[in-house]
Every structure is written in C-alpha cells, then in structure tokens.
Design a protein around this nucleic acid. Structure first.
Lengths: 231, 231
DNA sequence: CGTGGGGTTGATACAGTTCAAGATACGTGG
DNA sequence: CCACGTATCTTGAACTGTATCAACCCCACG
C-alpha cells in the first residue's frame, strides 16, 4: 500500500483515533486492489468476509428482486461498505459494483470484529459509523416515501451542488440511468422530469446541470434538514 | 420498576450480557412510564435525550414532510428506539407515537453513551443492535423500491403470520390506515388491494385475515430472504 | 338514537411505467 | 482521425398503478 493511501485511510473517522499499532494490526492481511469500471465487488446473499473501503473511484450499492433492480446508495471516497453485514457476521443484503475505475481496500471481517472487542476507541468509531449509515438510510426512505419524483430530483440537484461546492453547476458523476435508479424512477421518467425542471430554474446539457434560478428550484424542491441534511 | 419488567428488559440482547452492577448503573435515572393510546413520545427534530424501550404496547415510528406523513416502522415489545440518534448525540429523524396503551422505559442518553465507553460488552451489544436496525431498514427500502403495493401487502401478510406462529390466521395489531402508511399506500388503495387478494388465497373480515390457500398467496408474494428475512 | 371516525366503494385525475422509435454521444477499430 | 457500431438518452403514445375526491356504510360510543 502506498504511503499516501495509508494517510487517507488513516484519516477516516473510523480509524482516525486509534493507536498506530492497532491500525497496523487491523490492516494486516488487508489488500488494496484496483478494479475497472462496472465490476461487481459484492453479490447480495454472500457472506460478509471483508469490510471494503473505497479509496478512489465510485461504487454503487444496489439490490435485485426478480427481474427488477434498484440503487440503494452511491459511494465516493473515502467510505466503508458494508459495515452492518461485517459487524453482524452475516450475509450482505446489497450488491456492490464499480461505476468508475476504482481502488478498493479490503480488510478481513475477522480483523474488524476482533479489533472491535479489543479497542474501545475503535468500537466507538464503528458504532458512530453504523449509526451514521442508519440515519442516511432513514433519510433515503423518507425521501422515497414522502416525495414525488420531481421533488426528489430537485433536491438531489441542490444537495449535489452543495457537495460540489455550491457553484451552481452540477456535474453528474455517473450515468443518468444510474441516477434514475437512485431516485426510484425509470430513465424515461428522469429524462422528462429533468426537462420539466427547465421551467423551474435549471438548464442542462449532457451531464452538466446549471442552476440558473436557485430560488425557483428551491420552491420546487422545498428541502428539509431532516431529509436532505448534510450528514 | 417492577421486578418482572426488570427481567424482560434485562433479557434484551442489548443488556443480556452485561454485569449486574453495570446494568444497575445504566438504569439509574431511568423511568418507566405508562402512556395511553395515540400519544406522541418523540418529535422529529428534537434532540435525542433518551433511549426509549417499549416494554408493553405498540409504538409507531413515523415522519412528516409538508402535509404528508408516512410510517417507517412499527415496534412491539421488547425493542429500543431510537438507538442511532442516541449514539450520535443528535436530533431524532423520526417521530414516535403509541398505537396502544403502552409502558415505555426511558434511559437518559448520557447514561448510554457513558456506559458505552466503559463496558466493551455493552459496546458490542449496541453495535449489534444498530447494525440490526440498519439491515431492517435496508430491507424496508428494497421492499418499497422493488415491489408493487400488492406484493408488499402479500408479503406483509405472510411475514406477520410467521411472527404470529404460522397459524394461517393473521390479526392486525393496528388500524388499517396505519398499515397502509407502513406499506406506502393510501387507505383506499389498501382496501382495494386487500379485496383483490381475495382471489389469491386470503379471506378476511375486519382485522382478521385468513390464509386459505398459502400456495396461491406465495405465488403472489414471491418472498425473498434478502427482503423479508426473519431478522 | 344521533354522531363521528374508520372503512369501503365508485368516478376521475394524475403520476409513472412500458413499448417503440429516433437522436445523440461514445468507444473501438480500421 | 475518421467511420462505424453500440449504448445511452430523448421523445412520443398507450397503458397501468396509484392518488384524489366524494359518497356511503358500518360500528362504537356517548
């Protein structure tokens, strides 16, 4: 593992506070691997043998049922997945694939569980992490059940703009079909909804969306700190 | 607190393994309170000052956005809520209300966090609990995004029957309007969907549903261990 | 009895999906 | 570097699922 990689991983909330020796022991047996785009890293139903950490790239968490598929979450560096399955020593409930060439650190699940029992500082960090994920998911479920497609899209634009520095220019980090699955709609529907938002403060071509009238967009989106919060 | 209450709470996965003295210290300053039906216990947005435990009754976790409201989860004894907000020392993202006369144990959040740092056994139990909840929520989101209303209802019937001892006779523990919110549909729609399932193995009057042809219902529901699992 | 809330039923409207065709962008190989 | 082929995206039309609005029924409860 490169020194620069070690540094960014060490900076994760999960590892920031733990002692140097503990960290070394944890990542013993871990390996950092490079994956091309569109590679499946995890299949739902498999037993959780590794805690994955996305060091570089983009990873989609998705799930299937019958012939249908939906996106649960899209992860960018630096983030762990999927901590809950590792903690409970159970099967994954979601699959994961790369959406861009990515570098993934894989830590053996046994290391994580073993260290959890040994280091209270790490234990504290793991709970924080899982609780954070839980809350993110609550937000996603509220978004899904309480809003229309247009509202979800409008709020996604605002939130993504914020994450990208509030420049009023959002660039989609993945395909539109993926975004549509994340927002819980079909690609056709996303296309139409995007077109209809043109009358409410945005304009776009390709993977670029410009926020030309933020107030109009806000009137559409009506963001809520208990759904779209900065967490 | 009654001795019998102490026993059931102590039997919770969260508290089962911890030492007697630690348990005493944890529930110091806690209080067990009786609430009538339809009382709001938690308002989303409030800071999480207590870990609640439902000892008796039924509690609904719900959320609002604009004029809309939806149910996130319905809890029956013995369960904690809402651990993630307590762990992160943050605001609740969901509200909670009783759906039946209930007895609720309220443990000061500071006790929980303080003990977490002191007792690794308890720490382990808390992570397990939060991770379990996380996974339940993943299942709920998959249910919501990947299935139609009729499928959700059919699976709810099968799952509830299982929880009630697989007697082929399901009794709804709450109003139909609540069930409809849990399943993400309107009351009218639930009524119609329930009627339509009559042709697929169920019959019902009032709050009783009889499974007359389980195979037919299974063909409708097509349950999936990664969505409807026993967790 | 009357009253009110939950539940059902019907008619209508809308959001979202599906199917199909056309346009555009993109990577690949010549 | 261009031409080609494929996949993505867009647009249109028909259809399905679900929501909304309104009337009505029924039972519980005062």
């Amino acid at each position: 593992m490169r020194d620069s990689d070690r540094t960014v991983i060490r900076a994760l909330a999960l590892f920031r506070e733990i002692a140097e020796a503990e960290f070394d022991r944890l990542i013993e047996g871990a390996f950092l691997q490079r994956f091309p785009m569109h590679v499946v890293l995890i299949n739902e139903g498999e037993h959780a043998d590794f805690l994955h950490i996305i060091v570089e790239g983009v990873v989609e968490l998705f799930a299937r049922y019958e012939a249908r598929e939906t996106t649960i979450e899209i992860l960018q560096p630096v983030t762990t997945f999927i901590p809950a399955a590792v903690v409970r020593d159970d099967v994954y409930l979601k699959s994961a694939r790369t959406l861009a060439p990515s570098r993934i650190l894989m830590i053996p699940a046994t290391n994580v569980r073993e260290m959890f029992g040994r280091d209270p500082v790490f234990a504290r960090a793991v709970v924080d992490e899982v609780a954070l994920r839980y809350r993110r998911l609550v937000r996603a479920l509220k978004d899904q059940k309480l809003r229309t497609g247009a509202e979800r899209l409008a709020n996604w634009i605002l939130e993504t703009d914020r994450q990208q520095g509030s420049r009023g220019r959002v660039s989609m980090p993945y395909e539109k079909r993926t975004l549509s699955a994340l927002l819980g709609m079909t690609p056709e529907n996303l296309s139409r909804t995007l077109a209809s938002l043109t009358a409410h403060g945005i304009s776009g071509n390709g993977r670029e969306i410009l926020i030309s009238d933020r107030d109009a967009l806000l009137r559409c989106a009506r963001p809520d700190p208990l759904i779209d919060g900065p967490e």
